[in-house]
Design a protein around this nucleic acid. Structure first.
Lengths: 124, 124
DNA sequence: CTAAGTGTACTATGCGACTTAGTACACTTG
DNA sequence: CAAGTGTACTAAGTCGCATAGTACACTTAG
């Protein structure tokens, strides 16, 4: 699972959303798999059930999961939702590059940073 | 100058801070140059003077500008502040790459995005 | 059928960040 | 002296987030 950082200033509901998006993007959770119940996850994170419910509502509106009354919430099997996540990740990164460019960083500097990070990946 | 986006959710004071940081990073404003007065900038942006004052206080704490009672605020001539801005930009970009990596984007994908953006720069 | 567990909806409350408003003071400059 | 500057302070309002509590409809295991 993932961790919550209550001191980060990032809304808890957003952290839960991003946490599951990552888990799905990395294939740790897969389509059709059952999500933790709203109440159990709230208990696990020591957080209000309403907060988890809000996160689940966001995930459902994004097509990442779907919910069934009385049964539970499940990871969506629709591939389009997964593609949308990838697209959003690209868009976010696009914005980050634009910002870096606006601050005068060269493309070489950015490439160096990327290589540094992905080099570590290969070590694993 | 730069624009404010009141609908973005980003605090106005932060937008002002980032705006001047960019102006200095790009060399549009230079060390020793006088900043707009708190009141005049507030008028120009149709914003409360306190909000501009807050932004200036942040800029001063970061060494980007310095203020003199009764005279005004001026762009710092200390090069260390400029270097710190560059370092922060790198750190922010580092985080963006980490996030993209966490979502499964390959280094090639990121490089493509960078090339796309910096290609446009050369056109100008 | 019953009980437990599920998603969902609603209101009320507290808290903190941000912004605005207004006032005041010390300083510099023309 | 007057105007403009930075600075400091209190008060109020708005907004988003999180919590608390309750309630209802549904499904499933027993």
């Amino acid at each position: 699972m993932f961790q919550l950082d209550l001191k980060s200033g990032v809304p808890i509901s957003d952290q839960i959303v991003n946490g599951f998006i990552k888990l799905k993007a990395l294939g740790i959770i897969k389509g059709g798999e059952q999500m933790p119940s709203v109440r159990s996850l709230a208990l696990k994170f020591s957080v209000n059930p309403n907060t988890v419910q809000k996160a689940y509502a966001i995930l459902e509106s994004g097509g990442i999961i779907y919910s069934v009354k009385g049964r539970g919430s499940f990871v969506s099997e629709d591939e389009r939702a997964h593609l949308a996540v990838i697209e959003k990740a690209k868009t976010d990164f696009y914005g980050a590059v634009k910002t870096a460019q606006g601050l005068g960083l060269s493309s070489d500097t950015l490439s160096e940073i990327i290589n540094e990070i992905y080099k570590e990946e290969k070590k694993c």
